[in-house]
Design a protein around this nucleic acid. Structure first.
Lengths: 245, 245
DNA sequence: GTGTACGAGTTTGAATACAAACGCGCAAAA
DNA sequence: TTTTGCGCGTTTGTATTCAAACTCGTACAC
């Protein structure tokens, strides 16, 4: 009756779920729903509805929503001691702050990366160049493989953070970075036009880290994000904000 | 029998709790337990134990623990698909990263604060000077009012962030900043000796914001935190780390 | 005609119940 | 004496249940 014949009279056979993965499954699926826009920015989230859709009880859904709240994908509207969860709206103001924070966080990572021993730095630079080369090829040939731009750009920034950041910075970055993807996906109609600029900015980052110039690395990373916001802001203004009214 | 004659057969009379404050109460109390060291760094948190101590069920305690996990006070140890919550240990390495992040986050806030309109900036500078004057008096007279140094320093940094930061930055700051207090409380034996240095660093921050010099404000804030870590690191080395072994 | 009050439905907050998994100890056999 | 296997206690993960509070609609009164 329910979703996958998993309810009613067979509580024993949940073996597939392995006891402890429901929260994670809920988290990933809900975030996917939000990032891909299946849950509209600004719309109200009903726990029971989600739990029915995901085929689990409200408990893991609640936990997942708190994780998402932690990351800012979901915000809590407190009204008269009652709280509602809503999908965070996409606004120019929020994008400005978001990109600024991500830029500074990554800037910090880039700063540390520049101080890495030379062999680690070489490997890092190699990874970055590999990813950036793929981006450059897409920018040239204009063969947009759909998802690939998002994933490649995410990869580029991720390798920097993973190479240098400690657990805290990594935690914060992995929490806040995915949210920039929401903006990309909503407004990226012709983001490929600007891709080449971004590729050049990436090259500046690579050079700075290669040279071990911490200040330059930090500045280049921040500039990449500030400029990224500028590129985005035009699209937001042109297309309107989502979920704020 | 239980804690306050609130259990057993009177589930109706929970009117005092106002339906929606249990999570918050749990959150504040558990964080207090951690910050004040009643729960040792590195020690294992048992949900049932806490819920018994706080006189509530496991449900709000779990939610509160997830909030604390979000802030990094509590970390999750996954072992063979089983998770345990432990109180985050206090290590030199972690302090380094923590202070660095807080410094950069506040640096970002200070940068924005420097760009505020003049009247808002004047009010902000006035607030900062008021707080810093109290700190200076304590540094001079050496009348340590116990908690007051912590609260005053926290206040100084809070007014900067509140004056300029948006919701995201405020959220991140209010989440990560309290954790520096854990280090203070554990290692602050004679932190009053270093207070005067910190007061002078604060003055540099005030000047920069007063002059609207965003770069200088950011640098001064970061320097305050980096130096704060240096002061702390000596104490950590002298006294040993807590909760890591 | 408009405003207010009451009640049903919806939704979240909290508690309890239950199942699965980890860890430890004890016992038995080699 | 040592090692291995089994079983029980502890603890977390998930489901379910129940209560409280907010919302909205309708009806009644002024």
């Amino acid at each position: 009756m329910a979703t996958t014949a998993q309810k009613s009279k067979a509580p024993k056979k949940r073996a597939a779920a392995e006891h402890g993965t429901a929260i994670n499954a809920a988290f990933k699926q809900i975030r996917e729903l939000i990032v891909y826009g299946r849950l509209s920015p600004g719309s109200w989230i009903v726990e029971a509805e989600l739990s029915k859709k995901l085929g689990m009880s409200r408990t893991p859904v609640r936990a997942a929503l708190q994780w998402l709240q932690r990351e800012g994908c979901v915000i809590e509207q407190r009204i008269r001691s009652k709280s509602r969860m809503i999908v965070a709206p996409l606004t120019r103001e929020d994008a400005s702050e978001l990109y600024s924070i991500v830029g500074h966080l990554e800037g910090l990572a880039g700063r540390k990366a520049s101080g890495l021993p030379k062999d680690q730095r070489s490997k890092l630079v190699g990874d970055m160049r590999g990813v950036n080369a793929k981006l450059r090829r897409i920018a040239r040939t204009r063969e947009l493989d759909g998802e690939n731009i998002f994933d490649l750009d995410a990869e580029f920034h991720r390798v920097i953070v993973e190479a240098s950041a400690g657990p805290r910075l990594m935690l914060m970055h992995s929490g806040i970075k995915p949210q920039t993807e929401r903006y990309w996906r909503f407004y990226s109609s012709n983001i490929i036009d600007r891709l080449e600029v971004s590729v050049r900015e990436h090259e500046a980052i690579i050079s700075a880290i290669l040279n071990g110039d911490a200040d330059a690395a930090e500045r280049a990373l921040i500039r990449n994000w500030v400029n990224g916001f500028e590129r985005l802001a035009q699209l937001i203004i042109a297309n309107g904000e989502r979920g704020s009214w």
